[in-house]
Design a protein around this nucleic acid. Structure first.
Length: 776
DNA sequence: GCCGCCAGTATTTTT
DNA sequence: TACTGGCGGC
């Protein structure tokens, strides 16, 4: 911890101002993670704060994991006991302990979006409502927004008086909550809301956590909603040692209830709050930063600030406008390859887009080119059918009150128990006010069931045997036993469709994840496993040390950085989205889109490539659009006029004829596949757009590999720096930043902080333990 | 009770 | 285009 000198003045202020409320306005790339980690280290090392008195809240598990690693890198064992977690996992942890005080069991189930839909669909049906009028998605959206604002079903119904639609939604809201409780389940929003309820109504619980957490930090504060703010406020208690870190310019989750006033009005809630601004950007070149500033300054509702950098202007920003989306994909893949040949690893390049659907064409091209890539987002691993099936078995075993899960698996694989029999049991259960599973246990007593009762008994017996086994087996063993004993795996294997082979692989992958949990969790339990798994986002699987091009949405890219960034699909109607342009409060929504654009631009360290297609297929229809208005906001001089392949400064190029566009010609020659299987072949010249698009049939499952075990912790703590394998002056290679020269090695607690001057990425400081530098 | 076909709908972003 | 739910035939 001899490294405080490397901090700039405001950063230092952020580290040392530990008492009271602090609002850290941290611009993109201004080193906020560094401030948070150093701050925590300072609290523990210099202020003698116990690690378990510190709580740090992040948005993704990945961010939490990284922060933990970095703190551990500085403090080693001394960091044990710090709570670093996401809002949702924090709440799960609290509820696991105190859920009974709310009338739930500790082994509650968490319902994801799919489960919510199923439940709501049932309710709409039961109420005999017109499903056209009341769509489950719309109703759930209303409920979710209410929960974000801590509006209970009672309050909602009261506010709805006079509005017929809202009155019905209010009723559905109430019934929905009733069902959740009956099933001993929480949805995502409930995790927060119920924890807030608990803390605000139970002084004992509140005192317990106030006593526990003396210092609280919240990252990405601009994306918190009202309920999350209230949660933080309650946890903070009288000490008021709360440090929030955020950037109003990067607030991009309003659609999910993020309340920008949490940041804009922080000083109203905490009048004595100290406001610190981090405005020096260490990430991007001058040109990139200038572009970002030029775009964001068009927003009105923001705190004034000016991000600056000491870096040079760097390369020009490249703008490439092509005729069609397939050409865009081809161009990007080509540029990726060229950059790779110039020495930029694949892992240093990322492609960002507005919607997940855009990944398809890109993926197709990457496969054809034989370039390693990874798509983040889209369908979550845990929401695949086969995984959800297995999960439903586990949930049924763990929490018999979860009717939804029982319903899902009772006839999977086929047991000959159909809708009619199930309906009879459901009626019986409802009359007796018992769970569906308890109803099934009574099958013999339901006369009308006839032969079906035997089949149902078979299922009930299976579950009770499974419950007994769950007590002795590891979770991985239990899953394997389930999929074999029920014949589920057999059924998947029997089908020889490609799709099903993937499914079998996914189930195997799931078993691996369970095994990993069995090994690494502090106190592995089935409930714990299920709850953890339900909160995993796709981004969490991103591994820094793999050399692949990353493809993801702009939302997914928040908090990440890459030496080379492609912003794809920069077209009005796509980005900014059609919805935002045509919406009633278009002004506000466009500002949110603009912030998203700002986030995208500021992910880039050295090179930014913006692409736009004059036409693309949207839902099977060819759609024409003009260059995104955001690109128009970037000053001309930041674009290079002589970039190879650039449109050459002709930015406002409109009016190509439709026939020219429809020709779908590739722009180059010699685009032959590059180590791929050749099935997609070479240039697109001559092929019609539809035939190219028609090629996409199935997406390969982007593999999510698990690390065998421990994330390299104590490397090189031998003596001297003998364990590192390199010293000052040596040339080294980093998976993401490429080659560079070691400039300095400083011992920092258990690990070494190594300074490397990378040829393309510039000077970086990193902990040897997880930088995994290789001498060359 | 099961399977397959048809029609309607959706795509903005996700912990 | 692609997914889902509903419906009818076996």
């Amino acid at each position: 911890m001899n490294d405080y000198e490397s901090l700039n003045e405001p950063q230092r202020e952020g580290v040392f101002t530990t008492e009271g409320a602090v609002l850290l306005l941290a611009g993109a790339g201004s080193g906020k993670t560094r401030v948070i980690t150093y701050r925590i280290a300072h609290l523990i090392k210099d202020e003698n704060v116990q690690p378990w008195n510190i709580l740090a809240i992040t948005f993704t598990n990945k961010a939490a994991g990284e922060m933990k690693e970095r703190i551990e890198g500085i403090l080693g064992q001394d960091s044990l006991g710090i709570w670093v977690s996401t809002f949702h996992s924090l709440c799960v942890r609290i509820l696991r302990k105190f859920a009974p005080r709310l009338g739930y069991d500790e082994n509650f189930t968490i319902y994801d979006a799919d489960d919510q839909k199923t439940l709501m669909r049932n309710l709409i049906k039961r109420n005999e409502l017109d499903p056209k009028m009341f769509r489950e998605k719309g109703v759930l959206g209303e409920i979710s927004h209410a929960k974000d604002e801590l509006i209970s079903s009672v309050d909602y119904a009261r506010n709805a008086a006079g509005d017929p639609y809202k009155t019905v939604v209010g009723r559905l809201y109430r019934e929905y909550q009733g069902e959740l409780q009956k099933n001993n389940a929480f949805d995502f929003d409930d995790l927060i809301v119920k924890t807030v309820n608990l803390l605000s109504t139970d002084p004992e619980v509140k005192a317990y956590y106030n006593d526990r957490f003396h210092y609280i930090m919240v990252d990405e504060y601009q994306d918190t909603n009202t309920a999350q703010f209230e949660l933080v406020r309650l946890l903070t208690g009288e000490r008021k040692n709360l440090c929030v870190v955020g950037d109003d310019d990067q607030s991009i989750y309003k659609f999910r209830g993020a309340n920008i006033y949490n940041i804009l009005n922080f000083e109203k809630f905490f009048p004595e709050a100290k406001v610190i601004k981090l405005e020096e950007n260490y990430r991007s070149t001058g040109n990139i930063l200038a572009a970002a500033n030029a775009v964001i300054k068009n927003n009105r509702g923001r705190k004034e600030k000016a991000l600056w950098t000491q870096k040079e202007a760097g390369d020009s920003i490249i703008l490439k406008v092509v005729d069609s989306a397939p050409e865009e994909a081809e161009y990007i893949v080509n540029e990726v390859r060229k950059a790779y040949k110039r020495g930029e690893p694949f892992g240093s390049q990322a492609i960002l887009y507005r919607t997940n659907a855009q990944s398809r064409l890109l993926e197709e091209r990457f496969v054809a080119a034989g370039i390693p890539y990874k798509i983040v987002g889209g369908v979550n691993f845990y929401s695949r059918k086969e995984i959800k099936d297995v999960l439903a078995y586990l949930k049924t075993i763990d929490n018999g009150q979860d009717d939804l899960s029982v319903m899902r698996i009772i006839n999977v694989p086929k047991r000959g128990i159909g809708a009619t029999s199930l309906g009879k049991v459901a009626d019986y259960a409802q009359r007796g006010d018992i769970s569906l599973y308890e109803g099934l246990c009574d099958a013999e007593r339901i006369g009308s069931l006839g032969a079906a009762a035997k089949k149902i008994n078979g299922f009930v017996n299976f579950i009770s045997v499974a419950r007994a086994r769950a007590k002795t087996m590891s979770i991985a063993q239990l899953i394997r036993w389930i999929v074999e004993e029920t014949g589920y795996l057999e059924e998947l294997k029997k089908e020889d469709k490609e799709e099903d082979t993937d499914r079998v692989e996914n189930v195997e992958e799931f078993i691996n994840k369970a095994a990993d949990y069995d090994e690494n969790a502090e106190d592995p339990t089935l409930s714990g496993f299920l709850q953890e798994v339900m909160l995993v986002a796709d981004i969490d699987s991103l591994e820094d040390d793999k050399d692949y091009v990353v493809l993801m949405t702009l939302h997914g890219a928040k908090g990440l950085e890459f030496p080379r960034v492609f912003l794809a699909g920069m077209e009005d109607g796509l980005f900014p989205s059609f919805m935002s342009i045509t919406s009633d409060n278009s002004q506000e929504e466009l500002e949110e889109e603009r912030r998203l654009c700002y986030v995208g631009i500021t992910r880039a360290m050295n090179n930014l490539v913006i692409t736009s297609a004059r036409s693309r297929l949207v839902r099977g229809e060819l759609q024409y659009s003009r260059l995104s208005r955001f690109v128009e906001e970037i000053p001309n001089e930041l674009f290079g006029g002589d970039n190879p392949g650039n449109t050459g400064g002709r930015r406002r190029t409109e009016g190509r004829s439709a026939s020219e566009v429809l020709g779908g010609r590739g722009f180059g020659s010699g685009q032959n596949s590059y180590g791929g299987d050749g099935s997609y072949g070479g240039a697109s010249s001559g092929r019609s757009l539809s035939s190219i698009a028609g090629k996409v049939t199935k997406r390969p499952v982007s593999s999510i590999t698990m690390k065998a075990s421990s994330p390299a912790k104590n490397i090189g703590s031998a003596g001297g720096n003998g364990g590192l394998g390199y010293e000052i002056g040596d040339r080294v290679r980093h998976m993401k930043f490429g080659q560079g020269t070691v400039k300095n090695i400083v011992s920092g607690g258990r690990d070494y902080e190594v300074t490397v001057d990378f040829d393309t990425a510039g000077i970086k400081k990193m902990f040897a333990g997880f930088a995994k530098l290789e001498k060359i």
